[in-house]
Design a protein around this nucleic acid. Structure first.
Lengths: 213, 213
DNA sequence: TAGATTGTTAATCGATTAACAATC
DNA sequence: TAGATTGTTAATCGATTAACAATC
């Protein structure tokens, strides 16, 4: 397992492939496949065998010459690399449609993230549960994050609240913000990671790709 | 404006930056900024001036020496490049929480996409409207797409239906699939673009980045 | 005009691919 | 053992950055 220093050398391109490796390996495992070569894995993912071996080698040697990789073992290694076994804890900020959709349909636990609570300003929602997750008053957010060691904030608040809520949860101690607000958060705090899910960027890329073809 | 052939030379990295340019330029314009140099734009986006000039030069010369770029003009050019003025039309397949969230909160029109209809299997939903968009029976999908010249299908159906629905809408003539099912669609049809929105990949990347720091 | 800034060509950097000795 | 396949080093390719003549 690499140390902090090693991790810094891993390029973004590699990081973005890791979840795909996990996904594919999990599928293969569930499909009963026990072992696979970098070549076969590459073909099934539209990558090259070199790339896969290169990528994995940042984190260790998980294969065996003449055999390839044991699918389940490699999947578990990748899960560990991805922090799926680190016991991350998340809260959802904002229970509008998107927040609800995530609370009801997205299986955080499947990715090693414990979804502890949701927060909203609406007094009619506070005190209820959405998909077994309690909805608390937004005024409690800071205290809750601090006391429960929450490290991920899922930001599904309205745009005008985004920046302020982001600063608040950072102050309370989260390490990462999963940002669904479609806003560029102006966060430069060292040690804080913002992962943007920009629906609009994705749709516009699609729009570009289907235009003038 | 580049021809089909020119477009093929544009790298994915550039394509993914175009929506960000649009977003930033629109913000600047709304903020009353009339002109900007590649240098200033770069600083505000964490890019380099060279990169911006290089990126834009794939599509034409939109600036002026000694002056820079006229913000509104450039924004409109980027919008055109992105296909925002092409009159794309979309339908939403599946009106679960995610489909609803998009129908109610995502402003397709703002990105030049007309959201024409939504489809679901649930007879209680069929005939109603969600956010001014009519919900039709899924059995009507093919006919509707064909007759209304729909070119984008927003895929928010359950995983087990994903592949079949994708093939159906391709058969009916869409050019692009905006895939929210968190499934790898096995689509190799030439001329069809699949744009994946993998929540899980995004969360796992965040999980990686906040681990062992 | 002088200063600023573009669009483009050349140089650099980093990521992907190829090759191969090591070895299961 | 012989064949297969890894992990790693070297070669290649592509994207980013730097430089600068053109020119507003």
């Amino acid at each position: 397992m690499p140390t902090k220093r090693d991790r810094d050398k891993v390029s973004n391109a590699v990081i973005r492939r890791l979840p795909r490796y996990y996904r594919r390996l999990d599928e293969l495992h569930r499909g009963g496949v026990e072992r696979i070569s970098s070549n076969a894995l590459a073909k099934s993912m539209n990558l090259t065998a070199s790339q896969i071996r290169q990528d994995l080698s940042y984190f260790g040697g998980f294969g065996q010459q003449g055999y390839g990789y044991h699918v389940e073992t490699l999947r578990d290694k990748v899960a560990e690399i991805l922090g799926m076994t680190s016991g991350h804890k998340a809260v959802v900020l904002g229970c509008g449609n998107l927040g609800r959709a995530l609370l009801l349909n997205f299986h955080f636990a499947q990715y090693g993230v414990q979804l502890a609570a949701a927060f909203d300003t609406n007094p009619e929602l506070v005190g209820t549960s959405i998909g077994a997750v309690p909805v608390l008053d937004v005024a409690m957010t800071e205290e809750y994050i601090r006391e429960n060691g929450i490290d991920i904030a899922v930001l599904t608040v309205p745009q005008q609240a985004a920046e302020a809520v982001a600063r608040m949860v950072i102050g309370a101690g989260v390490k990462g913000i999963w940002n669904f607000t479609n806003m560029e958060l102006n966060i430069q705090t060292p040690g804080i990671t913002v992962e943007d899910v920009h629906f609009a960027d994705s749709l516009l890329a699609l729009s570009y790709l289907i235009s003038d073809q």
